[in-house]
Simulated assay, not measured.
Amino acid sequence: MPETLTADVVHALAPDELEEADLQPELETLAAGRHVLVCRKGGTPSWPERILAFLRRSPIEAVTVVTDEGVPEGEEFTAQVAETDLAGVYEVVSGGDAVDRS
């Protein structure tokens, strides 16, 4: 079931960089010819949010997103995604606004 995900890109891999990366075989198969984005779920936190997260000892949730469109490192995006069988890995749902970088 698709869900809306807002995330901040921490690391981006273009399709031509996938062979050099040490990806799980299942992720490598899923990402063939596509972009892989390692992201901070929820977008970029403000300084007060970072301090509260530190004091509450709530970790930053990292997710991996497989998409047809690339998003540069450091940018925030919103997309409709579907969870895959791999833990913490999402796939952008095709159709409509795939990736919104507003």
Rank of each mutant, 00 (worst) to 15 (best):
24 Q>F: 01
36 V>P: 07
61 E>R: 15
26 E>T: 13
53 A>V: 00
24 Q>W: 03
41 K>V: 09
40 R>T: 03
35 H>Q: 02
59 P>C: 05
25 P>D: 14
25 P>T: 07
40 R>W: 04
36 V>Y: 03
47 W>Y: 10
37 L>R: 06
54 F>Y: 11
58 S>C: 04
25 P>K: 05
23 L>H: 03
63 V>G: 01
23 L>R: 09
38 V>P: 00
52 L>H: 11
58 S>P: 00
52 L>Y: 01
25 P>H: 10
50 R>E: 00
57 R>L: 12
30 L>Y: 10
52 L>P: 00
38 V>G: 00
52 L>M: 10
57 R>N: 13
61 E>V: 11
33 G>K: 13
53 A>E: 04
40 R>V: 02
30 L>F: 03
25 P>M: 05
28 E>L: 08
31 A>M: 02
29 T>C: 00
63 V>R: 13
27 L>I: 04
52 L>A: 15
43 G>T: 08
24 Q>I: 00
42 G>D: 06
33 G>D: 12
48 P>Y: 10
33 G>N: 12
35 H>S: 01
41 K>S: 13
39 C>K: 02
44 T>C: 02
63 V>I: 15
53 A>Q: 07
62 A>C: 02
23 L>K: 11
56 R>V: 01
59 P>G: 09
62 A>L: 15
40 R>K: 04
60 I>T: 14
34 R>E: 10
57 R>S: 12
49 E>S: 11
23 L>E: 07
28 E>M: 05
42 G>V: 10
38 V>Y: 13
38 V>F: 13
63 V>W: 03
56 R>G: 10
38 V>A: 01
23 L>C: 04
51 I>N: 01
38 V>N: 05
51 I>R: 14
41 K>G: 00
55 L>V: 11
44 T>Y: 06
26 E>D: 15
60 I>N: 05
39 C>Y: 09
37 L>E: 04
57 R>K: 15
34 R>T: 07
34 R>L: 14
24 Q>P: 04
60 I>R: 13
51 I>S: 01
61 E>W: 07
38 V>C: 03
55 L>H: 11
43 G>S: 11
50 R>M: 07
62 A>D: 00
23 L>S: 06
43 G>A: 08
62 A>F: 14
55 L>R: 15
62 A>Q: 14
41 K>C: 00
23 L>F: 12
53 A>P: 03
48 P>L: 05
47 W>F: 12
58 S>L: 08
25 P>I: 06
61 E>D: 15
34 R>M: 08
30 L>K: 02
62 A>I: 14
58 S>M: 04
24 Q>G: 07
48 P>R: 11
38 V>E: 04
56 R>L: 12
46 S>Q: 06
60 I>L: 11
50 R>C: 07
36 V>I: 07
44 T>P: 01
34 R>A: 09
39 C>I: 08
27 L>W: 01
34 R>S: 13
31 A>V: 08
29 T>K: 13
24 Q>L: 12
28 E>S: 15
40 R>N: 08
63 V>C: 15
47 W>G: 00
55 L>K: 12
36 V>K: 07
45 P>E: 12
